[in-house]
């Protein structure tokens, strides 16, 4: 960093999200703390490769446990409109000023194990039956807030496009560079929606315009904003945070 320059070309605040991301490579880099040292005595403190591998294996085990605990009949709690959090907190892997507007001629691509791969322009999506929910968004960081979304139940959309519902994953790609993926059972849970509205108005860019996933049975980072493509697949798709070490299932 260039703290010595009197007029830095880049302000720290502007790149803090990127810096934070760079800092996050690997589970244990910079983890040589009191906790780390006292608990890792005997491990190779220079690479931690064995420890990382063990933690990775435990996260995969946790994913299997979470999938087993998941019951599609169990609903996320819903709240009255009076419980909605104001102001609603913005969250993304970048700062709010970096939010991308919807590209011209946007349409939703559909791919993978689906019968009908024709893309969906916004009016076609808006014409599908909608469903509203007021649910709690729980961030992996621990904070939470209650919001209202309205959109197309994903299970209906998947049936509409002739998706192979026995496939393992549904992957989401976003035009802001983000990506994530969920298991088919969670995708088919009735509260999982492709949201078009936030509160009672169409999504604005910072809330994920024109289309976002809203899945109240998973942590917030799974509710991808600014969608551009959905793929049904049996090949593990990973995701932006998942590839850096967040647990993939991330169910609540």
């Amino acid at each position: 960093m260039t703290g010595a320059s009197p007029r830095p070309a880049v302000r720290l605040g502007d790149i803090s999200a990127d810096l934070a991301r760079l800092r996050r490579r690997g589970f244990l880099r910079r983890a040589l703390s009191l906790g780390g040292l006292s608990l890792l005595t005997g491990c190779d403190l220079s690479t931690h490769s064995g420890v990382d591998a063990a933690l990775e294996a435990m996260l995969r085990f946790d994913d299997r446990v979470q999938a087993a605990l998941f019951d599609s009949q169990r609903m996320a709690e819903t709240y009255p409109a009076s419980a909605i959090t104001h102001p609603f907190r913005f969250n993304a892997y970048y700062a709010e000023w970096q939010v991308r507007p919807t590209p011209d001629h946007w349409q939703l691509s559909v791919g993978g194990l689906v019968r009908d791969k024709s893309p969906w322009p916004l009016p076609a999506l808006m014409a599908l039956p909608q469903q509203s929910q007021i649910t709690r968004h729980i961030c992996i960081e621990g904070w939470s807030q209650i919001g209202q979304w309205r959109g197309i139940p994903l299970h209906r959309f998947l049936r509409r496009i002739g998706a192979d519902l026995s496939a393992r994953y549904v992957a989401f790609r976003c035009f802001d560079g983000y990506s994530t993926s969920i298991d088919m059972a969670s995708a088919l849970q009735s509260q999982t929606i492709l949201a078009l509205d936030f509160e009672t108005r169409p999504l604005t860019p910072q809330w994920g315009a024109p289309l976002r996933l809203r899945i109240p049975t998973k942590l917030g980072f799974k509710s991808a904003k600014n969608l551009e493509a959905i793929e049904v697949t049996n090949k593990y798709p990973g995701g932006y945070w998942e590839n850096q070490g967040y647990d993939w299932f991330a169910g609540v």
Binding site: R23, R24, G26, F27, L28, R29, R30, A31, S33, L34, G35, G36, L39, A54, L55, E56, M58, L59, F61, D62, I140, E141, W241, Q244, G245, Y246, D247
Partner: peptide
């Protein structure tokens, strides 16, 4: 910071959700 285990949130959660077992 030096008391934390895991280096970042994802690492800390990996430790937390492993050691819990």
């Amino acid at each position: 910071r030096w008391t934390g285990l895991g280096g970042w949130l994802g690492g800390a959660l990996a430790w937390h959700l492993s050691a819990m077992w």
